[in-house]
Structures are given as structure tokens and as C-alpha cells.
Design a protein around this nucleic acid. Structure first.
Lengths: 343, 343
DNA sequence: GTGAAAGCGCTAACAC
DNA sequence: GTGTTAGCGCTTTCAC
């Protein structure tokens, strides 16, 4: 069962040469129908499976793709990875997952490691710390397939898959405004990330539309993306301690949203009575929270799928790919009571 | 950067033979200090990385391990996989994850697929549907390394890593009893799984200790492990509709616990006022629920690590492994208000 | 229509 | 101390 037959075994058993067997197995024209039948039948009988490692060596392809994300214990990324796996599996690729924990050094090490593993391509979501994307640029220019998703590198012209962050933020902020909140803070990820900037823009645009001033003190960045709990707690306390305390917070990242809820609970701040909350998260249990949480939800599974399709298409392209697209998917705003005004 | 140098390139550049280079790289005794230095220096300079695929072919080892779980979008399993990856990565293995979605057929297909990928070993947690474990038995008897974790096959004598399910259930049930609940139902996974039986035993033992009768109508099995939402909803409704409605439910699986909370919310059943809840889950946000959820939590990360250590030890053992252990880890009961009596 | 042989990158037995 | 060679499983040119 696991001691597999090789092409050689089949050749020996049938008194043929390995090349004949190989050709028969691959349905080559030049093989006699009878021989072909014989080989196919025998292969079927002994449950022959080509050795993927030998194939890889021959083809100079590992049939694996490397994934770089900040962490897997994050609903957004675990769902995205699910999507990645679902496509990769069907296309005969396996995926090697690495985590940066939001560190640039770990990200570099992971890319190095994946390259030394001879992955055929890379699916990357940048760490919160990353500012220097020249390694990706270099690889990409050399023709190495890379697809970015979610946290993309602006200056590398390759395929990218992102959510409509602007719209997601705009609508969530608008929801808070319509609920009657006027002093809305924005807690978000590192300024390094394009998603943070896009989400801020959406937030700001909603304020503008409704004629609300933007108070710079209401903008808090967590440069470690919520990996350091104290950083988040500090930012939240700063908001709470302001003379003009915000009456709502719109949160721009999955981990930050969840962390914030833990912190608010710890500080015994009531949501939405003391402060209303809406935030990006892909948690499936946000409706079970106390209070049920208003969320901006991304189609993470689908994003993973699209990114993987694009990557495999690039890998398997006969010609150097020149046209790169940026696929934008829609987000979903789910209103629940954490963003409702208490009267 | 990704067009790697081979041993041959180095040999050519230095005017040596490939074998000399290979030996120098591997620190062989028989190579002159000077040559060694030369090779090492050059290898360092061009950032030489051995081709893992060629190594695999040579060694007849893929340096990969296959993982079979029901699903990754489950806190217990995503944490376990994290533990698996953390060990595997450091030991130079990559992991290929497959999901059964609680189907025996998919489980078989996954094992087949992993074997055809020439994984060096298997880390398995059985599907809820699985009753026939002869394929594992067969593989194991042939000397193929397998380690079970969480959902183990009783009749395959290999390494196993499990939590103290009996104790976890006993203590959770005891907590409910001490809170004053007397009509405690037990909602659990398929009877096929040993964990279900162990968890039931712990539940039953607690009832016995406190002189409470066991009402067979209070025991509900979800044979699809919560993959079919209707099955769970049906079971819960049956409990709620009983003449003598239970006043508490102790739930024996992560997915079932989460699903049940969704269903109770949908049915507008108040916890713990209408019915108290305690359940197995590794969710990190259970404290944010309404009400905060009393949980039995397993050290999933650690379980994944231990299982992987055992597997790699078995894979790399020079001698056929004869002594197999069953490692049992402790669980943690975290009491919150979902299991508290309302007065 | 089929076979022999080379080669993918690497190691290791066997020369010398 | 270093080089030559075979072989891991497979495909593919080149012969016949």
C-alpha cells in the first residue's frame, strides 16, 4: 500500500522497457494499443502512482506553493488558507504555510526558507512591520510568480487580491454616524500597510460626507498589528482617557477588533453604552458576543481561492506573464447591537 | 536568488568534482581543510542551498508529514495544527493538511492521497463517521509511522496523544451539579469516537457521585459531529421539548458547543436562565460570549506538538519502533456564568 | 512501435 | 584527499 510500485517494477513484470511503460502511462501516440492496455491494466491492478518527487526533480518544479501570512490563528487568515488549500489541492499543489507574527525579519526568513524549498510560487500577505519590499520586486522581475492578497506591496506590479477596504470602512463608519455617534475614533493597524490607509480613507470620507470633523487624536495605530496586547490596551486607554472621550470606535483589523473586545471587558467598559464598536473581523461567533458585534466581513475563503487561481495560472503559464490584475472583492457589513445607540 | 546554485556549479567554479564538494559541504573527515574552507566559503558566497527534492529522491524520504483532521476552521484543530507546524518546521518537515469534513470516504481518499505524495508519516484524528480502522492497522503493521491524536483508533497499537477527557467531563458536570442543576443533558459527538465514550463516562461518573439519575433521554449524539446544522438543532429542540426539560446541557465537542450557542440564540433560549451550558471548546473568545461561556479547554497546541515529536521520532528511528505510548495531557476547566444558577 | 541512454541534484561505494 | 560512477524515479531524445 505505501511501498509503491515504480515504472521499473511494471516494466520488469511486463517484460518491457521503462520508456515504453512511461509512454503508455502518459497515453503517447506511438505505443501499440495492446501494449498500452497491458500497461494500464497492470498499473491499475497494482495501484501505481507516479512518484511526485521524481517528477519534481525532472520537471524542476516542486508542485508546492509557499504562503506567507502573519498568523494562522486569526479567523481571516484561517479562512483564506482554507480557500488556498481548496484550490491548491485540486490542482495538485501542496501548500507550505509560514507565519511572520508581524515581524519583518521573520518574513524575510520565511521567504528564504520557502525559496530554498523550491516552491513554485508565493502567496503573500505582508507583515505589519514590512516597509522594504525590494526582495519581492527582485523576485518578481526575475519572473518568479508571486501573488499578494490583503496586505499587498504597492510597488510590485504583480497580481493582487484585495477587498474593497474603502467601502467597508465607509459603510461601517456611516452606520455609526447614522446611529447618532459623532465622536468616532479609529483604531487600526500599522500605517505601513496599504489596507490601513485605505480603511482610514473610507473612515475619513464618511466623516466628511456627514460634516463631522476629524480629530487626529482619535486615530490610533497599532504598529505590531495587535500582536502585543499592551500596545492595544495602551491605545484604548488613551482614547478612553481623552477629555473629549470618543463615543464610538471603528476598528480596522481582525485581531485588533477581538483584542479590543477583551480589553474593554477587562476594563469593564460597557459596549455600546459607554462606547460603541464596529470593526473588521471574520469571526463566525461575533453574533454570540455580548453585545453582538457589528462587523465588516471579508470573503476570506474566496480571496484565498482567487489568489491561488491567479498564482497557479502564472506558474503554469507557458509565456512570461505581462498583464497583472488587481482583483477587488466586495465586503459585507453586518450590523448588530454593538453599534447601536442606547437611548 | 531563486535560481539556485547546484553542487555541480560549485564544483565547476572551483575545479573540483561534485563528490568532493558534497563531502566538503557535509563536513566529511576525508576532505582537506583548505579545500573544505574553499568550498564552504564559496557556497556561503553564492548562498548555496541543497535541493530538498533531490535529497528526497535520494533518501527515499519526502520530509513531509500528512495530517488528517475533520476541519481546520475549528479552534481546537487550528491550534493543534499550529503546534504541529511549530515542531515540523524546526525539524525540516513540511506538513500537508487534509480535511475529512467528518466523512469516512474523504478520510480514506485523503490517506490515499497523502501516501501517493510519499509522506513520511501520518498524524491522524479520525472522522466522526469512521469505524473501520483496518487501513491504519495495515499501514502500521507494515512499519509506516502513524500517530493518532484526540480521536484515536483503539485497535491500532501506535503512539497516541489524548486529553484527559474523563476528568474534563467529570469536572464540568460536577460544576453544573454544584451550581444546583439536577437535570443535566449531554450533547455529544458520534458514538463511534472514543472521546465521546470517555466524555460520557466522565459525565456519568459525576452524576453517580452526586446520586443523580441518568436519564437516557438526556443523551444526544450528533453523528456528523456538528457538520450538519440541522442535526444539532433537532437534538437541541428534542431536549427543549421534553416533558421534563433539562436545566443544563454539558456539550462534548468544540463544534457542537459553538453550534449550540448559535441555535439557542436563534431559538431565543436564554442561557443560563432557561438552560445552563458548559462545553468543550478551545475558542479564545468564549469569555466574550453572552453569557460568558464555561468551557473545558484542551492544550491543543501542546497536543499537536507532542504528537509531532512522537511521529518524527518514529520516522527517524533507526530501529523498528516497538514501544508505543499513549500520552495523556490535562485539560482546563474555566468556569464562567453560562453555568451559573440564576436566583 | 519499442528500447537504450542521458539527465534532473545529490550521496556514497569504490577507485586511485 | 579527491575523482569516478551508479542510482534514486521519471521523461525524453535519439536509435533502430
Amino acid at each position: 500500500m505505501f511501498e509503491s510500485y515504480t515504472i521499473k517494477d511494471i516494466a520488469k513484470a511486463l517484460g518491457l522497457s521503462t520508456s515504453t511503460v512511461s509512454r503508455a502511462l502518459n497515453g503517447s501516440y506511438e505505443i501499440g494499443a495492446e501494449t498500452k492496455r497491458l500497461v494500464l491494466e497492470y498499473a491499475e491492478k497494482v495501484n501505481y502512482r507516479p512518484n511526485p518527487i521524481a517528477l519534481s526533480l525532472k520537471e524542476q518544479k516542486s508542485h508546492s506553493i509557499g504562503v506567507v501570512v502573519c498568523e494562522v490563528a486569526n479567523d481571516y487568515f484561517s479562512q483564506a488558507i482554507n480557500g488556498i488549500e481548496s484550490i491548491a489541492y485540486n490542482r495538485g499543489y501542496h501548500v507550505i504555510i509560514t507565519q511572520t507574527h508581524e515581524s519583518f525579519d521573520r518574513e524575510s526568513a520565511n521567504v528564504q526558507h520557502l525559496l530554498s524549498r523550491h516552491v513554485d510560487g508565493l502567496l503573500v500577505s505582508l507583515s505589519a512591520e514590512t516597509t522594504d519590499t525590494t526582495p519581492y520586486k527582485y523576485l518578481h522581475e526575475k519572473g518568479f510568480p508571486i501573488v499578494f492578497f490583503d496586505r499587498v506591496a504597492t510597488d510590485v506590479n504583480t497580481h493582487k487580491v484585495i477587498a474593497n477596504n474603502f467601502k467597508g470602512s465607509f459603510e461601517a463608519t456611516e452606520l455609526l454616524i447614522k446611529a447618532g455617534f459623532k465622536k468616532i475614533a479609529h483604531l487600526t493597524n500599522s500605517i505601513n500597510l496599504l489596507i490601513s490607509r485605505e480603511r482610514f480613507d473610507g473612515f475619513k470620507a464618511a466623516l466628511d460626507k456627514y460634516g463631522l470633523d476629524f480629530n487626529p487624536g482619535y486615530l490610533k495605530h497599532c504598529n505590531h498589528g495587535g500582536m502585543i496586547q499592551d500596545e492595544v490596551e495602551f491605545a484604548i486607554k488613551e482614547l478612553l482617557d481623552m477629555d473629549e472621550r470618543p463615543d464610538a470606535i471603528f476598528i480596522g483589523s481582525d485581531r485588533l477588533t477581538i483584542n479590543s473586545m477583551h480589553i474593554l471587558k477587562k476594563l469593564d467598559i460597557k459596549v455600546p453604552d459607554d462606547i460603541a464598536i464596529a470593526g473588521f473581523t471574520n469571526s463566525d461567533v461575533a453574533e454570540l458576543f455580548d453585545p453582538p458585534l457589528t462587523v465588516v466581513r471579508q470573503p476570506a475563503f474566496q480571496i484565498g481561492q482567487i489568489a491561488t487561481e491567479l498564482l497557479i495560472k502564472t506558474i503554469e503559464s507557458k509565456w512570461p506573464v505581462e498583464d497583472f490584475i488587481t482583483e477587488q472583492v466586495e465586503i459585507e457589513l453586518i450590523a448588530r447591537s454593538s453599534s447601536q445607540r442606547i437611548r
